[in-house]
Computed example of a mutant assay.
Amino acid sequence: MTPAEERAARQDEEPLGSVLRALRLTPVGGDEFTGTALPQLTGRIYGGQVLAQAILAAAETLPAGAARALHSVHGYFLRPGKVEEPIGFAVERLHDGRSFSTRRTHALQQGRPILSLISSYQEDQPGREHASAAPSAPDPDGLPSALEMFGGMDHPVAKFLSSTAAFDVRHVEPDIYLRPAQDPTDRQMLWMRTRSPLPDGLSQLQHRALLAYACDQVLLEPVLRRHALSWRSEGLSVASLDHAMWWHRPVDVGDWLLYVQESPSARGGRGLGLARVFDRAGAHVATIAQEGMVRVPEDADARVDVAP
């Protein structure tokens, strides 16, 4: 490998390395931990990061020797976090049964919660099984990469994303980064995997936490797509409100995952995004739901006629 190739490889590895370092929490006593935030142009903490950190904090309090896998989370984003401040994580042990453990975790800044999350963990057990089938989708290797697109743009946001994004995203339909979709449908599909190979020895819990980290960036796109909006629509304001995930089978975020997305409803400045996630072999590995605030300036001028 030439020196130039080595530098390029390090540049690709570092974004994921920064994420993995941010997910390493420091115990501070009892069931409390502290962590740091990754830089963001907005100055606000990326929601997927604090979600993943809360998942990992809760798992640190599971019974010793109990092999319980994370299977669901339900959380609310309560306040925007500030990237320059440390984040505290306080875990409450709600329940430890014969098969399941349940935890509530608050992510805190200046003593106030920015995220409240309940997570559940289960022993691996036999049971009835079925799963939805993955739809047909083009191979990701033949689709355009968001990383390559951002890397070729002379814009501060694009430059930031191309240098810090830890995941490669490849849309099946034309993306909506710069312009609205020509066909304003509430459905889309995309592939996603880590930008560089994962280090050896990551646990399944870490893979599941990384899936939570990554998915927050795309879940509301079907809402935007349905209403002919793009990420560059003037005055667009988007924020995650709540988030739920279910993990059905082992997941590998270092390999391509297919997100099959839709938005069944939007109203009152809120939009709901759903995603079924499949691995490259077609196994249904996770299901995700998120409601978010989606506002544009012209919505404030809308009026609803009500009969007297």
Results as ranks from 00 to 15, higher is better:
residue 40 Q to H: 03
residue 140 P to M: 07
residue 106 H to W: 07
residue 206 Q to T: 12
residue 66 A to M: 06
residue 195 R to I: 10
residue 270 R to G: 11
residue 228 A to H: 15
residue 165 A to R: 11
residue 143 L to Y: 10
residue 47 G to C: 03
residue 5 E to G: 02
residue 155 H to T: 00
residue 207 H to M: 11
residue 60 E to S: 14
residue 149 M to D: 07
residue 242 D to H: 09
residue 37 A to Y: 06
residue 249 R to K: 14
residue 206 Q to S: 02
residue 169 V to E: 01
residue 55 I to S: 08
residue 178 L to I: 00
residue 123 E to R: 15
residue 164 T to K: 09
residue 63 P to A: 10
residue 305 D to R: 13
residue 264 P to L: 12
residue 303 R to I: 08
residue 189 M to A: 12
residue 205 L to P: 01
residue 174 P to E: 11
residue 247 W to P: 01
residue 17 G to I: 06
residue 269 G to T: 10
residue 308 P to I: 00
residue 146 A to R: 09
residue 152 G to Q: 10
residue 78 L to A: 03
residue 150 F to Y: 15
residue 253 V to M: 11
residue 254 G to T: 07
residue 277 V to D: 08
residue 67 A to D: 15
residue 6 E to Q: 15
residue 291 E to R: 04
residue 57 A to S: 09
residue 157 V to P: 01
residue 229 L to T: 03
residue 233 S to H: 09
residue 30 G to F: 09
residue 85 E to I: 00
residue 272 L to G: 06
residue 281 A to Q: 14
residue 150 F to I: 01
residue 295 R to F: 02
residue 115 L to C: 02
residue 245 M to N: 02
residue 90 A to C: 07
residue 46 Y to R: 03
residue 178 L to M: 12
residue 97 G to P: 11
residue 140 P to N: 08
residue 169 V to K: 01
residue 147 L to R: 03
residue 131 A to N: 06
residue 60 E to R: 15
residue 104 R to K: 13
